[in-house]
Design a protein around this nucleic acid. Sequence first.
DNA 1: ATGTAAACCTGTGCGC
DNA 2: TGCGCACAGGTTTACA
Length: 271
Amino acid sequence: MPELPEVEVTRRSFAHAIAGADIRHVRLGKPLRWPLGLAPEALIGRTVLQVRRRGKYLLIDLSEGLLLLHLGMSGSLAFVPELPEAGKHDHFDLFTSQGSLRLHDPRRFGAVVYASAEDAPVAHKLLGGLGVEPLGEGFDPVSFRRGLVGRTAPIKQVLLAGDVVVGVGNIYASEALFLAGIRPTVPAARLGPVRIARLHAAIVHVMQTAITKGGSTLRNFSNAHGQSGHFQTQVMVYGRDGEPCHQCGSLIKAIRQGQRSTFYCAHCQKL
DNA sequence: ATGTAAACCTGTGCGC
DNA sequence: TGCGCACAGGTTTACA
């Protein structure tokens, strides 16, 4: 479910409310992708300092150590004064003095992992290989181009890999390539400065717009207040297989790339 | 080092 | 209505 915009929207929806809260109790449901890495009781008494984001990870800084949180494919967070009884897909609850944070994740590809520090081995293993932030200073056309050197894989798959630029998932990769007019199947290294500059701008634009719109709610994404996003209403190609292109009217195509669906307009994306 | 496929798990929608 | 299959917003792991 969540790509960078959804994760950022989630972060903004509860970061302020949870800052300064003291942890009073922790409840674990079924196992997630990785074990917490710490006895849950050990978190009691620690204070939440702030919530940051790196790629699709949320970093919850504590008075001692931090929690790395990932929403996987189907995760969402809720931050509420009073939690209802846990359902079958509620696998992590953090009860604090200022409200409770709950991770709901039916497929359990998500994770909550404790790290003693941001450069501790656990954290480094998860965050170490990540590319630059698309909305950060490090993302510019020149360094973007350097990152694509030697990459013979299709540009769509290189975007998804996340080692060049982070946070671009299956929806926004298709959308950004459409905006840039680039064919998703082009080998990444064959993109020249002009197309790379267009793609760079498209990625930044799509990410910013999606955040502004509250993310995309395809099935059931919502922020920590239960509010849906509405970027999906202005999607140009994702999930529009067989429908007319909003720009030229020809029918949107769907192909498989690396076991993921890709959507594009063969007329608008010829580069 | 890079590329590709399988794996993790549950739910939903579709064709028969 | 039920069954089986394909597919779903991600990322690690194993192997070419």
